[in-house]
């Protein structure tokens, strides 16, 4: 029976990894293409949750889960055009400081608008409960979340691999100078990437809002995990981030199975080992602009 319990934690870890992925993918894309370390990514996650709760009574669960990320993605246009755009060619430390400041401003703005007390968001009764498949117990809602993440992953992969947009983005990650030499301006693509990235973070916030408490500092709770996933996965690698998110989820679950007190520390140990043995991350590729 112990082995069943063990695998139950492994599978649960994979499900949780899918949720980490929503936050980490956008962070990775924005860093890979624009060279921006976006410390305000958690603020967009929180904003996604708040807008979701706000729209829940009017648009219902599915409506709010779609509209909230779309609105945050639109906000991403302003974020990219008014702020990030000024820092593409600057020292990364500047964008790091600016986005850190923005995260603080965003958290305080949420506090001013919605107050410091948590907002109430519950799962619809139909989505509560668990499903037993074989010997494994799954939350019905998390299975749904996993399905949504899988669909998004597939769509994103197709966009990056099979469209001209994706080809430019991938080329932009590796050789932005060559892309510019071909007469292609990367800036509009960057706007789209930021929209996509912060929209995914907001979707993560919206999907997690019914099963966690929605409060102004909730972005801080996820941003560290997202960075750990990006670092373990490796820059510029789509599948690296996917593998890292799932790995972090599984390692956490397995650690909690054997030694629960170390559950939260396990991802940092994993990051330490990866950085020690493979500084570029699991599937990270050498990126010219970061190799100087």
């Amino acid at each position: 029976m112990q082995i069943v319990f063990f695998f139950e934690q492994v599978v649960n870890g994979l499900v949780l990894g899918g949720y980490y992925l929503l936050i980490a993918l956008g962070l990775s894309l924005i860093f890979s293409v624009g060279g921006i370390v976006n410390l305000s990514h958690g603020a967009f996650y929180a904003l996604g949750a708040y807008l979701f709760v706000e729209m829940l009574p009017t648009f219902g669960f599915a409506g709010a889960a779609v509209i909230s990320p779309v609105l945050v993605a639109c906000l991403g246009i302003l974020f990219e055009r008014l702020i990030l755009r000024r820092f593409y060619d600057e020292d990364p430390i500047l964008s790091l400081l600016v986005t850190f400041g923005l995260a603080l401003v965003a958290e305080q703005s949420i506090r001013i608008i919605w107050g410091g007390a948590p907002l109430l968001a519950s799962l619809p009764p139909d989505l509560k409960g668990s499903v037993i498949i074989g010997d494994f117990l799954f939350s019905r809602y998390r299975l749904l979340m996993l399905g949504v993440v899988a669909l998004i992953l597939l769509a994103l992969w197709l966009i990056l691999q099979r469209t001209s947009f994706g080809r430019v983005v991938r080329a932009g990650i590796q050789k932005p100078d060559m892309v510019a030499a071909l007469g292609i301006r990367l800036q509009p693509y960057m706007t789209a990437i930021v929209m996509l990235g912060v929209g995914l973070a907001a979707l993560g916030g919206a999907l997690f809002a019914p099963i966690t408490i929605v409060h102004p500092a909730m972005g801080d709770e996820i941003i560290t995990v997202a960075f750990v996933v990006v670092i373990i996965g490796g820059l510029g690698s789509f599948w690296g981030v996917v593998a890292a998110a799932l790995l972090v989820g599984v390692v956490r679950g397995v650690t909690i199975h054997f030694y629960p007190a170390a559950g939260e520390a396990s991802m940092y140990v994993l990051m330490f080992l990866v950085l020690l043995l493979r500084p570029r991350g699991l599937l990270g590729e050498p990126i010219e602009k970061f190799e100087k």
């Binding site: 007390a117 109430l120 519950s122 668990s130 099963i211 966690t212």
Partner: peptide, 27 residues
């Protein structure tokens, strides 16, 4: 919230509570 999400049958009680915990978790 997450215990209700999984819907396990074992009753819960608590030795530490604050009003806001209930407000944040919901009915």
């Amino acid at each position: 919230k997450q215990y209700a999400e999984f819907g396990l049958p074992f009753p819960t009680v608590g030795f530490g509570f604050n009003t806001v915990d209930g407000w944040a978790a919901g009915p």
